[in-house]
Design a protein around this nucleic acid. Structure first.
Length: 418
RNA sequence: GCGGCCGUAGCUCAGCCUGGUAGAGCACCCGGUUGUGGUCCGGGAUGUCGCGGGUUCAAGUCCCGUCGGUCGCCCCA
């Protein structure tokens, strides 16, 4: 027998109802803020991710599902959502129309990693992107939106906020030099894994879980003390706007993102109940992304939220804001071949009127059908037996109160509306 | 890519240490009520004991390998 590939899993009912509930809630919430849905391909040219996420980044060097198709093209299963959306915008020239472009998605991401709690090789991500404006109010709008969605879903996440400046010697590049100098000075005190990447990705040293490294980093120079005046001003405006909106946050000067395209505002949502993982989502500005892909200057900001992680966190909280119920409202019980055909007809008639209905196709006894009716979650059982068939009626039973009455067939839909 | 633990019925697991050819609960089906569910009672079906190899008269049980799961490192949503 076949099993699902390593690091993937099927989602079956009842869990799947929660997925549907959560993703609908998200897309509805985003739409209410003007973000229209977008769907991009599940695979892209490998180069798209090399040029946006960064050819030196861990995601690109170790985690991508990259393959050659029969035409010899190097393709990659989408490891993140922002670069494909930007690519689609540039390809279709949306940046020459009305700005900002506001898009939302619910799509699978693929990363080759060792699976563990809250981490699989395919995961579903909800995201929204606001593209074409540098206005700090857009940052606040985006952050409030994702915060509100998570809160509505039933979480109380901690919002961590930082600014990592922009790609310029007067700003982040200058800081990285200062940081590298500091790290080289203290390299003997760092854990070996952290020492190894002083030159490749010094910012990530802040994320180390090595005690000895963290001890060193407590005295490390902070990016927030070295960003340029314009970035500082932008960040102050974002904070002010969030305060206006009463969105609470914590400034985390050590918050660093793993994808190269991020600039200025970065943020992350942390919750408990995810095992070793702590983030349900994160995002930030990517003012240089378009240019990295060969497009015009097109600043933007967005976020990505992990559906599996949100659901895990909700489970650990123990409450779902909206526990979905069965959609079957009426169960038609039939006795005899003639009644079974009538049952399909009645079930279909109810469905055409928008009433959830189901019936037995297993040839169950009446007792078995009643049991199945109960199991289906239906409120009503409509019984079609020989007596009913003879008189053109149906017995309508309320499965909660156990009360039942005989009605002419054409009055059944009206009787089970409530 | 590295490490710990685990892999027995559809599900959750016991049995493994101290080898003697499989069990419980739930779920499912049938009956108690040949036209009435959710409760209760009675009965029933189901396993290549992850896979491959080894030790042994005999392996679910011991050994090796492998695949998968899980948790952690790493990385990230």
């Amino acid at each position: 027998m076949f099993a699902a590939p390593k690091g993937t899993k099927d989602v079956l009912p009842p869990e799947a109802w929660r997925w549907q509930w959560l993703t609908r809630l998200a897309m509805d919430t985003f739409a209410l803020a003007g973000f229209a849905p977008v769907v991009t391909p599940d695979f892209e040219h490998t180069e798209l991710f090399e040029r946006s996420v960064g050819s030196e980044s861990e995601v690109v060097t170790k985690q991508m599902y990259t393959f050659a198709d029969r035409g010899g093209r190097s393709l990659t299963l989408r490891p993140e959502g922002t670069a494909p959306v930007m690519r689609a915008i540039l390809e279709r020239g949306l940046e020459r129309g009305a700005l900002p472009v506001k898009l939302a998605y619910c799509q699978a991401m693929f990363r080759y990693e060792r699976p563990q709690k809250g981490r699989t090789r395919q995961h579903l991500q909800l995201g929204a992107e606001g593209i074409g404006s540098e206005n700090p109010l857009l940052d606040a709008e985006i952050i409030e939106l994702s915060t509100r969605f998570l809160t509505t879903a039933g979480l109380k996440p901690v919002l961590l906020l930082n600014s990592i400046g922009h790609e310029d010697p007067s700003c982040r590049q200058g800081y990285i030099k200062v940081l590298s100098g500091f790290l080289h000075e203290h390299s003997a005190e760092l854990a070996s894994a952290d020492r190894a990447r002083i030159d490749t990705n010094p910012l990530r040293t802040f994320d180390s879980k090595e005690e000895r490294t963290l001890a060193v980093m407590r005295d490390a120079p902070l990016l927030s003390d070295h960003i340029c005046a314009a970035c500082r001003e932008h960040f102050d405006a974002v904070r002010g706007a969030l305060e206006d909106l009463e969105v609470s946050f914590e400034i985390e000067p050590r918050l660093v993102r793993g994808l190269d395209y991020y600039s200025r505002t970065t943020f992350e949502y942390q919750v408990t109940g995810l095992g070793a993982q702590s983030a349900v989502g994160g995002g930030g500005r990517y003012d240089g992304l378009s240019e990295a892909l060969g497009g015009p200057r097109l600043p933007g900001i967005g976020f990505g939220l992990g559906v599996e992680r949100i659901l895990l966190a909700l489970e650990s909280v123990g409450t779902f804001a909206d526990e979905p119920a069965s959609a079957v409202h009426v169960y038609v019980v039939a006795l005899g071949e003639r009644a079974q055909r009538a049952a399909l007809k009645l079930t279909t008639d109810l469905r055409r009127r928008g009433i959830g209905a189901d019936f037995d196709v297993m040839g169950r006894s009446m007792k078995g059908q009643m049991k199945d009716a109960s199991r289906s979650g239906a409120r009503w059982a409509v019984i079609l037996g020989e007596q009913e068939m003879a008189t053109g009626t149906a017995t309508v039973k309320d499965l909660e109160s156990s009360e039942q009455t005989a009605l002419p067939l054409d009055e059944v839909p009206g009787a089970v509306q409530a």
